[in-house]
Design a protein around this nucleic acid. Structure first.
Lengths: 217, 217
DNA sequence: GCTGCGATTGACCGAATGGTTAGCGGCGTT
DNA sequence: AACGCCGCTAACCATTCGGTCAATCGCAGC
């Protein structure tokens, strides 16, 4: 229905097909992320993308192929390099920056994080590639933490004497716990600042508490 | 097909209908927990329960009704009272027991925990009642932790000076983090003993490490 | 103007879905 | 022996699913 009329102001000459493919991906992202794989039908995607169902199958051979395309698209913002952000900081500041970064990212990408988590929990077969990539992210983050903690311990900044691996594992668990707490209870229950302060207190024996309130039942 | 011939030796006189209803619930539990709501068809349930599909609709009006029945059945083992288990222990032992209990429970009920988590993350409408009950469990557990920590602080056992709410929240987050770590990486990555030791170290300034190994890359 | 080709569509398909219905066997009651 | 009810089933129903196909549309090159 008049799809050829739509020519939103994009000066760059993209093939018309790229446009429709993108529209389909956008619609599929939205639907898959909010309803999951099995609960989303190709007809719904077609309707939301204002495109015929057959066109989707022209762009993507099967529903699964569309799904993994969506997965990869949603995963893109997850790959950023932290290195440039923490150029000349001491270990302690780097660790805290890392923690804050994790939590802010989760807050800003809550919907896709929720989607990935649910997807990996439920349908392991469909999300094998997803599993690999997430695991890669996870181990990378973990390795950075271990290195930072070990370095901090050597410099004597960190009084805690646990093995860096164990400390990093525990810290990561706490972060993941905050993640799911955030997913369920929303922003009201978790604030990055408080968590960062908590980590500082735990790892470095801090007692400076900038925000001493935060009671809850 | 000859279903009336099956008369497994059960001496107790339960109505035949209760038997079939139970068989259906068992099959549905298995299938729902391993595949989710939308991915499980009533015909599959019927086949696994070795019962006609119509009989399922005779016991349960709709698929959703069967589902919530399964939910409640799966939730039963989650309601236990901790009070009797920790009768005459000091706060520290109680806290550690509580932590150990949490982790052991997750390990022993991993499949249903995974199912609940995925279900709540994905389909909030269908799991409203589930949400309520889990939240109740959560806040109950949290309240116990808060009380124990506060009490330990008053007695001077716990040197950490954070607000009990904050400490309990952080501890709970760590536990939830261990939960999802366990769900993804399996038993090899998380051991309750190590976690309990870690908590002791964190909360009470312990340095006794009974199992000093456990390196990882 | 014709041709060729990438992009797009409506109509269609078999399979599976959640749910219904008419009826059947067995058993306790009268 | 007739009745009625409970437990149960095979067959059926409308709808929706993922996927296919022949037929177009628009446009570049000749």
């Amino acid at each position: 229905m008049g799809a050829s009329q739509i020519k939103v102001g994009s000066n760059e000459p993209r093939t018309q097909s790229q446009d429709s493919r993108d529209e389909i991906l956008k619609a599929a992202m939205h639907l898959f992320a909010n309803r999951g794989f099995h609960e989303t039908s190709m007809s719904e995607v077609a309707r939301e993308a204002r495109v015929s169902k057959a066109l989707i199958f022209w762009h993507f051979k099967t529903k699964e192929e569309l799904f993994v395309a969506v997965l990869n698209r949603l995963l893109e913002p997850y790959f950023i390099d932290f290195a440039e952000e923490a150029a000349a900081m001491d270990e302690r500041a780097q660790i805290q920056k890392l923690v804050e970064f994790y939590l802010l990212f989760v807050r800003d990408n809550a919907s896709s994080v929720r989607f990935f988590l649910a997807q990996m929990l439920q349908d392991q077969r469909l999300s094998e590639s997803l599993n690999d990539q997430v695991l890669k992210l996870y181990t990378g983050y973990r390795a950075m933490l271990i290195e930072l903690i070990a370095s901090a311990q050597q410099k004597g900044i960190c009084p805690r004497r646990s093995a860096p691996e164990a400390a990093a594992g525990f810290l990561l668990s706490a972060l993941n716990g905050l993640l799911i707490e955030y997913l369920f209870l929303g922003a009201k229950a978790v604030d990055p600042e408080g968590a960062v302060a908590m980590v500082g207190e735990w790892l470095f024996g801090d007692t400076s508490q900038s925000s001493p309130s935060q009671g809850g039942a």
